[in-house]
């Protein structure tokens, strides 16, 4: 009745069973390793690697994006400042240029005025000089006209004679 509770029901222990199960188990383990364990654990490891890589890359890209945003913001702020400096520079330049133009215009006007004054002076002097000359020649002419009137033929003959006499004396002495 309870014969199966005794390990050795027959004459000998079921050593064959033990060996058989050990063998079957080892074979099963090998087969599972080849068929499923190897590929599945490899796949699981690949997945784990992939996930950790993805997490790392996501973290990295997040940091990159943050950095980029910061850079953008800075650039925006900089561009504001730059724009205002450009505008103020332009204003300064404009003011300076205006002053320059005004100054140069003033200078030019001044020099033009001076030149004109000098010319006027010169002309006045020239005119005065010309007038003086005219007066002189006129007076000389008038004088000569007056003198001519008082001279007469006798006087002229006397003058000519005296000259001719003078010439004859000179020839005799020779």
């Amino acid at each position: 009745m309870l014969s199966h509770l005794v390990l050795g029901t027959t004459n000998s222990l079921y050593l064959g069973d033990m060996l058989f199960f050990a063998l079957v188990f080892v074979l099963l383990m090998w087969a599972i390793k080849v068929v499923a364990w190897g590929p599945v654990t490899k796949m699981m490891k690949e997945r784990a690697d992939r996930i950790s890589n993805d997490i790392d890359s996501a973290e990295k890209s997040r940091q990159d994006a943050e950095k980029l945003a910061q850079k953008r913001e800075e650039a925006l702020k900089n561009s504001h400042a730059e724009a205002s400096t450009i505008v103020s520079n332009a204003k300064d330049n404009g003011a300076k240029q205006r002053e320059q133009i005004v100054a140069s215009a003033q200078q030019e006007a001044q020099s033009l005025k001076q030149n004109a004054q000098k010319d006027i002076e010169q002309e006045r002097k020239d005119a005065l000089k010309g007038a003086q000359n005219d007066v002189a020649s006129l007076s000389i002419e008038i004088a000569s006209k007056i003198i001519q009137k008082e001279l007469n033929a006798q006087d002229q003959k006397q003058l000519i004679d005296s000259y001719i006499e003078g010439l004859g004396k000179q020839n005799e002495s020779r």
Partner: peptide, 11 residues
Amino acid sequence: LTFNTTNIISG
């Protein structure tokens, strides 16, 4: 060696 047929088949 002694084998138990039942165990062999079932295993």
